[in-house]
Design a protein around this nucleic acid. Structure first.
Lengths: 202, 202
DNA sequence: CCTTAATGCGAATATCTATTCGCGTTCAAT
DNA sequence: ATTGAACGCGAATAGATATTCGCATTAAGG
């Protein structure tokens, strides 16, 4: 941030600008999100925008930071460790994922689509680490006999598989019933995560 | 295509332009692929470009058509139906996928990353239909007892999971060993596709 | 060879967009 | 109330890019 907003009105402007950035991306897509539109949507002038954000990217980065916090809060609110069934745990996570993707009128959808040209590392790491920790605890509790040593690879695979399959599905018309998709994704993921490390089951 | 190239030289120019488009996307990324650069790379002028392509998008569409043919040819060359083991079949498909993603110095990688703003439907349908047909035949042959009725959903899930997990992996530094990733992806996919439709195994 | 249509050219054009800057306004501390 | 700093503004700037168009060059048929 180029300058710290010292007065109340300017702090509100900063918040409005970040919010407006989200609105623009959601309504017009990332490509047609211009500084002019953002300023207009926020009800301020382009000049003011540059008072607190070094450039457009900084604004988008601020938006992503804010959304990352929202997601972190949402994840904390999910009481997944109380669940004892692996399938149930996965299914709830997937339903949470769908609800996030559908929220904010498709803002998240557009952001994930454009992940490769946005500073999404923080958000990605957040998800990765959350599910990593969750699985670690789960397997410590339920599979003490054969510890899963390649958990990181499994979590990487599972996270990306679910996320992008969901995005692809929501991006299309609903050619597939969402309930069924969630169920089948759960089957795949739970089946895979429940598999013993290398050869045959104990 | 705006006009049909009638003479030999102009037909070569059309080919060179499509090829140059691929080069530019691969070297500079889709965002920095300009008509000027494409023309320069092809060794012709911008004006000539518009003689045969209505606009930039038409040029990119032509590139995608050409690559779709290449992929179709590659798939036809894979003798997958000769394989009797599901895991082996999946593993070979995944290795083929990695080889395509790595070919042409990352051109495919950049195209898949930007799938949502490119006319990728033809290519996506191609892959989808190929693996759909492959699985249909495989399951007709091996699982005649419990036919899998939701094959389309499964193929959708599996195709997207593998494709985008691969893209995410190649986009990062190689934080994960590619051999291991291919092996684990295979485990997940083969395990899932081998599962009986709803409840318990027969 | 000569004509005519096809081909090729690239400077010029029309837009669009991020970013700046000088000026007027508002705030807050004294 | 005064004053200096913070704030807010939006026209102007600089740079980029897709697309066009009038003119030059080349090929092919007669």
């Amino acid at each position: 941030m180029r300058k710290q907003p010292r007065q109340k009105r300017s702090r509100e402007m900063v918040k409005a600008l970040v919010e407006a950035t989200g609105q623009c991306i959601q309504r017009h897509g990332l490509d047609d999100t211009t500084t002019a539109r953002i300023a207009e949507q926020a009800g301020v002038s382009v000049g003011s925008l540059y008072q607190y954000f070094g450039d457009k990217d900084a604004l988008i980065a601020a938006l992503l930071d804010r959304l990352a916090e929202d997601i972190a809060a949402g994840l904390r609110r999910l009481p997944l460790m109380a669940v004892t069934d692996l399938g149930e745990m996965v299914h709830r996570s997937i339903r949470f994922g769908f609800s996030v993707l559908r929220s904010r009128d498709g803002l998240y959808l557009e952001l994930v689509r454009n992940w490769h040209r946005l500073p999404t590392n923080r958000v990605v790491d957040l998800l990765q680490q959350h599910f990593m920790e969750l699985s670690r605890l789960y397997f410590l509790r339920h599979y003490r006999d054969y510890p899963i040593e390649n958990l990181e690879v499994r979590v990487f695979i599972v996270t990306n598989s679910v996320l992008f399959t969901m995005v692809r599905h929501v991006s299309q018309g609903d050619l597939i019933d969402e309930e069924e998709l969630a169920r089948e994704l759960t089957r795949m993921v739970a089946g895979y995560l429940g598999q013993p490390p290398q050869g045959d089951p104990p």
